[in-house]
Design a binder for these strands. Structure first.
Lengths: 222, 222
DNA sequence: TCAATAGTGTCTCTTAGACAATATTGA
DNA sequence: TCAATATTGTCTAAGAGACACTATTGA
């Protein structure tokens, strides 16, 4: 293996979230190889310096090859490190989290993966390595961001109603939000743009909105 | 060198802050070895899996050996990675930030360091590697935390006045705070404890406070 | 008409911000 | 007494939270 106790093993793990059926779900893969073969885990892989520009592009490459998905929003959460978190030896796992719109969740089974599932985060099975801790950490980071930013725009269809957006936020946060408060906060937000279109259901049609094309949710440097 | 293009170089960099003379200062070291010999940089070093429990303990070891200081508060910020950030090749730098009380800043010059300085963050010279970016990132993280937590308690003497605490916060944030607002927010905070002691200057004596012994500022997992 | 969803208005409570007022010390 | 700093109080504005109200559609 790569790890020889002089150099740590460097892996990238990704907590990739979506909202389906008003439920926050996480992509889990069943490991096809040792270690932890046959167990559910967050998708991840080993850094390949010759292929990867940096850790973030490494995460994109891993998602592309393992589940053949191109991800738009992806950001680092933190690292997990030490001798015991991976049976192969001293390792560093850099956890990333990503958001994928529901209409792009038809991810395909590819190499080194036995199976994959979009799992409701509330009913997650036991995971390999320290991935349960990683998942909880990514979830906390996601929720913290959702409360202060409009991160869920990355999960929306190109055109969406405010009710759609609110339901997505509620699924992520795991709690109901007040309609009035929610809309009031959007009033001053320049990241969403009002359209002159309406989408009719069986009831009163709702106005459609779109995200600003270059909206940005990285944490600002003050 | 350790890096052979199969395994990345793994380094730990530390932005260690203090407040002296009501100025926010950062510890810089002058590099004694290549690469970037003779340039100012954040203190840092290479991970040694056989010595380090994890990246955080590695950061503590590095601070101990390079400037012989034991640090209480230390936390990861994020990583910087890629082929070009270090001339030795593909590398991962895990940035940490730390806080040191002013009365413990008598750090000593040790191995692999030519010189050290506590530098006002506003007048920082050019730094080696990507350390200017790292410093700005650590500073932004520190300021964000100070606004919502009582992180500066780590910088205070064992007993301190509320005016002391306010001045420390102001030095970190780089702006004046309202006395009344500042004290009002502390009223409901259980991390600081009122003492029945007073410290007299040439004017009206100020009441002394101390930090709760086990106060904790890690981000809660919601 | 009704049910269902979209969208708005209103009240209260909390908090930030600005700034004034009072308190206590040594000189 | 005064200067300096500590400590508290007061007014206003903005925002969150709760909840009621109105609007528009298809059946």
């Amino acid at each position: 293996m790569i790890n020889d106790q002089l150099n740590p093993l460097v892996v990238i793990d990704i907590a990739i979230f979506t909202v389906q059926d008003q439920q926050l779900k996480i992509l889990l893969v069943k490991r096809a190889n040792e270690p932890e073969k046959g167990r559910w885990a967050l998708p991840g892989g080993i850094l390949i310096p010759s292929k990867d520009l940096n850790l973030e592009s490494s995460a994109r490459r891993i998602l592309k090859t393992k589940v053949s998905v191109d991800i738009a929003y992806l950001e680092e959460v933190c690292t997990f490190s030490g001798l015991h978190r991976d049976p192969r030896g001293w390792s560093i796992a850099t956890l990333h989290y990503a958001l994928l719109p529901a209409d792009k969740t038809h991810a395909l089974v590819k190499e080194s993966i036995e199976d994959l599932i979009w799992q409701n985060v509330l009913t997650c099975p036991a995971l390999a390595f320290d991935h349960e801790l990683q998942l909880q950490t990514a979830l906390a980071t996601l929720r913290r961001k959702v409360s202060s930013h409009l991160l869920p725009l990355h999960l929306m269809r190109p055109k969406f109603t405010l009710s759609d957006l609110q339901k997505t936020c509620e699924a992520i946060l795991g709690q109901k939000l007040d309609k009035s408060v929610f809309r009031r906060r959007l009033k001053n937000n320049t990241d969403i743009i009002e359209l002159e279109e309406y989408e009719g259901g069986a009831q009163r049609p709702a106005q459609l909105f779109k995200a600003r094309t270059d909206f940005e949710f990285k944490e600002p440097l003050v």
